[in-house]
Amino acid sequence: MNQKSMERMSGAVKFLVLLVFGILLMMPFVWMVSVGFDRTANITMPFPPRLIPETISGFNYGIVFENGRLIQSYINSGIVTTSSVFLQVFASLLAGYAFSKGDFKHKKLLFILVLCTLMIPMEPRLIPLYTLFNSFGLLNSFWPLILPTVINGMLIFLCKQFFDQLPSTLREAAQIDGAGEFRIFFNVYLPLSGPIAATMVILSFIWSWNDFMWPLVVLNSQELHTVPLYLASFSLENGTSLGGLTMALATVSILPIVVLYLFLQRYIIQSIALSGVKG
């Protein structure tokens, strides 16, 4: 066998291995969709597992939407995520810009302080934050979910890195024209920060959308539940007793994210690779 056909062979084997493992990874999703469409999947699941359900019906999906709690939780997650993303990205742009182009006392010390916040997990802050928002009477509202996102060390860090790459001559030119610091930021640097802003929106969207422990602590009333909270409460109530319905619910909850991911995959994968976020 000559070398060329050897290479082609090994390439084909690699491709095959990747394909088989890829199918294995996708298997839970495929089965989820299939069971969701299966009318016979109620208290017992169809067994042996089938790829194409015996009686295809939208029954389970009908129940999911009829119930309305999923749609409500989508709206809630939408409100929380949009506000958090906006607040977080804006505050991080401001701070990242100041740490990059600013000239003030204790700049380095303050920046190290920001980096230190990256090492503080949520757990030790859980109880004091809970009592803090309780004393303001803000439990059972979206405020506790939105306000603490204002500080994100990772995003400030990424922003600073980005602004470091932009030349300071832009500032000097604007200064000569008599522009103040805020005007320089809003009119000169902010319009240039599109790429990093897109990355930050993606990252903070993922963080905020998937946030679980803190919303679980703060939100008691069902009407305020975000999507992950609703899923968890449904799952804990029903266990594995309502196969078809659970799978339909999981499908509907995952679908929008998957569609968004397929459209933006290049940017999302880039952002993840840039930051090392864990979803």
Partner: peptide, 17 residues
């Protein structure tokens, strides 16, 4: 990368089955 995009909560729900 697809599994990592889905929330771990939904993933846990599916894995129960």
């Amino acid at each position: 990368f697809l599994p990592n995009v889905t929330s771990i909560v939904a993933a846990a729900m599916i894995f129960q089955f």
